[in-house]
Nucleic acid binder design. Structure first.
Length: 467
DNA sequence: ATCGGCTCGCGCAA
DNA sequence: TGCGCGAAGCCGAT
């Protein structure tokens, strides 16, 4: 039957309150910002059909979302506009309302039979859902749609490394790697009169929000939305995927999918990507395996990390061996020293690093291989590893479209030894893995990368879209 | 081009 | 309790 597509482990009642007589089922959308392959949405449609009522979808848009700026809001709203029209085509009313997400949800919960929400793995996302569950006065059901295998199905603790979580994920893959079909909504909700923001006028909406405008939007490089995510994915699979295994660590090329930012905003489901990759015509077994390893094992290790680690955004979350060895080398002399301001200005002595920093600032993205080098050098050049960690995380979250994601915390942690193993001891890094500029020269065409970034920056100045 | 050594701790086999 | 092995490392030797 259809319900098999929503595995019971994805569904969790967040309170014991009963369902009420109500005008509609409310889907409070927050993490899974899409109209397709969204388990929370399909669950809500089925519950509405069961009760013979209709479905209302609301999204709470808050001005001061932690660390978000104009760049992120623009991409977010482009995506929500896409969701709104896709849901309208299914006869489902969706509104975006300004306010604290739990308050927006609670406002519309008052006329609802029950509330369905999706799931997030960061502390504020959990706090929002807890509050709604406590105050809604009716059943609140959370449906996970952000990972392939739900985090608590995999394990009940923070995993030590990829190798420990890998078999625990693989055990369940077959059961969870299943397409989700859409269920038609019985009673159309487009006639509901609920006011919301006019997403036809994004500039107007953005102008009225009190948002940090210091980081510019990057629509010329990446546009938000499920439609755009799927277009990029199709293009990647058709044109670049067959080279993925060879080129994934070659930043001079762009043979990567760019899915991280769409995943961050929930604009595409990891399930959709995984199923497409499994059946992609181009690409060898190695390409498939290495892509799925990153998409599922590495990404879900990050979800595991933030879900089970209280201080996932602090230096104290690093493994003990790493903190110990970094402390032992804290006062080692540094050949180069930079402040956050100098780093942010891409004004170091290292042209490779500066290019990476410029790619990040100008496009909201950085090739994954360069992200490692970029972070390792911040550790090397700042006067304390703790300050380096805080700086790398702050810059990551400020400039990347995929910043503030569970993957951000795991990736920045990895620079400082998280989910990694010790290597032979050297100055500053201690036993934490080191990376060098000569490694880049040996393993890829790093000058090609620098030229690529120069070209990107040039097209920026001319205002010509690049992709 | 390829290889071994560096180093810790998890998880499994025994 | 012992042992194998691990996200992308580097370096020097062959």
């Amino acid at each position: 039957m259809a319900t098999i597509q929503i595995q019971t482990e994805r569904i969790r009642a967040l309170n014991d309150a009963p369902t009420r007589k109500g005008d509609y089922v409310l889907y409070w959308m927050q993490q899974s910002q899409r109209a397709e392959c969204n388990h929370a949405l399909e669950y809500a449609v089925r519950r509405a059909n069961e009760r013979g009522v209709t479905l209302l979808v609301v999204f709470g848009l808050v001005d001061d979302y932690p660390e978000a700026n104009l760049r992120h809001y623009r991409f977010l709203l482009e995506g929500l506009r896409d969701v709104q029209s896709a849901l309208a085509r299914r006869g489902i009313k969706m509104i975006v309302e300004r306010g604290e997400p739990p308050e927006v949800a609670l406002r519309h919960a008052r006329s609802a039979a029950l509330v369905v929400c999706d799931r997030g793995y960061l502390r504020h996302q959990k706090a929002w859902r807890n509050r709604v569950a406590h105050e809604a006065g009716r059943s609140v059901v959370q449906v996970e749609s952000d990972v392939v295998v739900p985090v608590d199905t995999v394990t009940n603790k923070a995993e030590y490394a990829a190798r420990t979580i890998r078999p625990k994920i693989h055990r369940h893959l077959q059961r969870f790697l299943v397409a989700l079909k859409t269920t038609p909504l019985g009673r159309d909700s487009l006639g509901l009169r609920v006011p919301g923001l006019d997403l036809g006028d994004l500039d107007g909406v953005l102008a009225r929000l009190t948002v940090d405008g210091s980081v510019t939007p990057v629509s010329a490089h990446f546009r938000g939305g499920t439609t755009e995510a799927k277009r990029l994915l199709r293009q990647f699979l058709a044109q670049r995927f067959s080279r993925y295994g060879i080129n994934r660590n070659r930043p001079e090329n762009d043979d990567v999918s760019h899915m991280s930012m769409y995943l961050h905003f929930g604009q595409i489901s990891p399930l959709t990507i995984a199923l497409e990759v499994q059946t992609a015509a181009r690409g060898s077994r190695t390409d498939r395996e290495s892509y799925l390893e990153e998409l599922i094992v590495r990404r879900e290790l990050a979800a595991n990390f933030t879900n089970f680690t209280r201080d996932y955004d602090r230096f104290s979350s690093l493994p003990q061996w790493a903190r110990r060895t970094l402390a032992e080398h804290q006062s080692d002399p540094r050949e180069h020293r930079y402040t956050r301001r100098e780093l942010e200005a891409a004004a170091t002595h290292d042209p490779y690093w500066n290019a990476a920093m410029r790619e990040m600032k100008h496009t909201g993205f950085m090739h994954n291989y360069m992200r490692m080098y970029w972070g390792k050098k911040i550790l090397e050049w700042m006067d304390s590893p703790k300050r380096a960690y805080e700086t790398a995380l702050a810059l990551n979250n400020k400039y990347f479209l995929d910043g503030r994601d569970p993957a951000s915390y795991a990736n920045v942690g990895w620079i400082f030894g998280l989910h990694d193993r010790p290597w032979f001891e050297r100055p500053i890094y201690g036993k934490v893995r080191y990376m060098s500029g000569s490694g880049l020269e040996r393993k890829c065409d790093i000058d090609g990368y620098v030229r690529k970034v120069e070209a990107l920056t040039r097209t920026d100045a001319e205002g010509t879209p690049k992709r």
